[in-house]
Write a protein that binds this DNA or RNA. Structure first.
Lengths: 233, 233
DNA sequence: ATTCGTCAAGAGCAGCGCTCTCGAAACAGT
DNA sequence: ACTGTTTCGAGAGCGCTGCTCTTGACGAAT
């Protein structure tokens, strides 16, 4: 615990940071499949085997990038929410949705890495979970606060949440501390999946040659999804 | 154009079929990134360079698998729709949604290949488009017929489609021959994205440790999305 | 019977992830 | 200040990948 020991650990931390930073740049240009340990090492002026002192495998490097990606979108979402008037829940929902889409459009390969198809043998390490929940927690807070303020006013005629998914909804609410009735929680979960489904469709080319006014269509979609939850606009 | 020439062409077509078939099996077990030309060749008892007589590159093989995947889900959807009573549009929507999910769960890697993040330098070849539209056309037909039968009864209080996306909706309707008003088309497009967003969330692990009753949650979701379009259940 | 197109095979290139060994440097304890 | 230990980068090397090029054999058409 002496100063000298922390000196070595500090240069180690710095090198880890440099590696992930370089890897993230490569990821942004070449995508996850094109990320090469050797190329990263080459750019850093070291030999490929040296990387293994810091990341035991290529997948571990990818895991680090995944965690960073979740944190990046989480931070963007948190800031977008913070910039809104707390009482205007509809505006907060809209701001959060737009922030996610804008980050995804700006970082398509990172988005694909965390919300696309799992890359290798797809065993998501458990330590990515907290970072993965950051955006969801913001979202849950908006819904909870809107509900507690009595501002949620969903359209009539939608089916109620069936009893068979009560346990799931309870588990989901507990994970993100969302204190709302089952019906609200179910619709919130749906809107959440719909939001990411829309972003993924746009980024992964499913809207190609169809939707051109991406922002206009996206805004209309998330407004409708927001109405589904019960936000007023 | 003699018989002998077609004989040669026939063995060629058979070999192409064998290659794609073997490749699909490898894809199903190892995923797209694990698909190796050399492994396919090895299993077929030929040398790797021989494959290049039939597929000019690995990406071309993947493209063939993508087209096959689109056709597979298209066929499943068409059959699911055909087995319903034509007048029961809500049941048809539900059947189509369930068919898509079941196919995706049964063929996760193929689903990831066509609806997940684009694999390489992601330039979707234009000749996959017709196959990609097969399921969408079925879906559009259900919506159109329900609308023409006056059976669509969407919840009140949802925002109307803004004028800014009129052109996009017109283009989308033309692509799949869906003759309905803008509001209906917009909501149908949203439900469509929401459906695939839900399936992707389940397959790509976003529901991990949260939703366990996958079928129950999925049914509730697509029922709600169906209500959004205006189907009655 | 000869010509010509098609094909499988083999060698080979550059790149990849990953492992192992080795010598140098930085650390810790005396 | 001198040990012994740990940490680290470099290098060689293994087996794999996609892909190219050349060679020789076979079959169909002239």
């Amino acid at each position: 615990m002496s100063a000298s020991r922390t000196a070595r650990e500090r240069v180690r931390a710095e090198l880890i940071h440099e590696i992930t930073e370089t890897a993230r740049r490569h990821l942004a240009t070449d995508g996850a499949t094109g990320l090469s340990l050797r190329a990263v090492a080459r750019e850093l002026g070291m030999v490929s085997s040296a990387i293994y002192r810091y990341f035991p495998s290529r997948d571990d490097l990818l895991t680090a990038l995944i965690t960073d990606g979740y944190n990046a979108v989480g931070e963007v979402v948190e800031r977008a929410d913070a910039e809104c008037r707390p009482g205007d829940h509809g505006a907060r929902w809209l701001a959060v949705c737009r922030a996610i889409r804008e980050w995804a459009v700006a970082h398509p390969h990172e988005y694909a890495l965390i919300y696309g198809s799992p890359v290798p043998g797809y065993e998501a390490p458990q330590d990515t979970v907290p970072a993965a929940l950051r955006d969801t927690i913001v979202f849950a807070r908006i819904v909870t606060e809107a509900h507690e303020a009595g501002e949620l006013d969903p359209p009539a005629g939608l089916p109620p949440a069936p009893a068979s998914i009560e346990a799931d909804l309870a588990r989901g609410r507990a994970a993100v501390t969302m204190n709302v009735p089952d019906d609200v929680a179910a619709r919130a979960l749906m809107a959440w999946a719909g939001l990411y489904g829309t972003v993924s469709f746009e980024l992964f080319g499913q809207f190609e040659t169809v939707v051109e006014n991406r922002i206009g269509y996206f805004d209309h979609t998330v407004t409708t999804l927001g109405r589904l939850i019960g936000f007023r606009f």
